[in-house]
Amino acid sequence: MEHFGWVQEAAKTEHFPCADCGFPIVGKNLEWGKGLYVMGAFAELEIGPVARNISGAKKAAGIIADAAK
């Protein structure tokens, strides 16, 4: 996650949980902080390696949409 140092800084400032590898620790609904949802690489620990492709984007969008209801 070396290209996302700004995310790690924001996580420290806002006290968002991160794994030792730097990835966000998110809930089953992909919420990292109150009202802040992630997808793509940031959702990889929850969704798995598919998170970085179109299938993962569709899966994450569905999860986030359900959580927003």
Results as ranks from 00 to 15, higher is better:
His3Leu: 14
Lys34Val: 07
Gly56Glu: 07
Ile54Val: 14
Phe16Thr: 00
His3Phe: 10
Val26Cys: 11
Ile25Ser: 04
Glu44Cys: 07
Ile54Met: 08
Met1Arg: 08
Lys12Trp: 08
Lys59Asn: 09
Trp32Thr: 05
Cys18Thr: 12
Gly48Gln: 03
Gly40Leu: 08
Ala61Gln: 10
Gly62Cys: 08
Ala41Glu: 11
Lys58Trp: 04
Glu9Ile: 04
Leu30Cys: 05
Gly27Tyr: 01
Lys34Pro: 13
Lys69Thr: 09
Lys59Ser: 10
Ile54His: 07
Ile47Gly: 02
Ala61Asp: 02
Met39Gln: 09
Lys59His: 12
Met1Gln: 11
Ala41Lys: 11
Ala67Gly: 08
Glu46Tyr: 07
Pro24Asn: 06
Cys18Asp: 00
Ala68Asp: 03
Ala68Cys: 15
His3Tyr: 10
Gly27Asp: 10
Pro24Phe: 09
Arg52Gly: 05
Ile64Gly: 09
Ile54Trp: 08
Glu31Pro: 00
Cys18Gln: 15
Met1Ser: 12
Asn53Cys: 04
Pro24Val: 07
Ala11Arg: 05
Ile47Pro: 05
Leu30Ile: 01
Asp66Asn: 13
Gly62Ile: 05
Val38Phe: 00
Lys69Met: 09
Ala68His: 03
Gly33Asp: 03
Gln8Phe: 02
Ala68Arg: 11
Pro24Arg: 06
Pro17Val: 04
Val50Cys: 08
Ser55Gly: 11
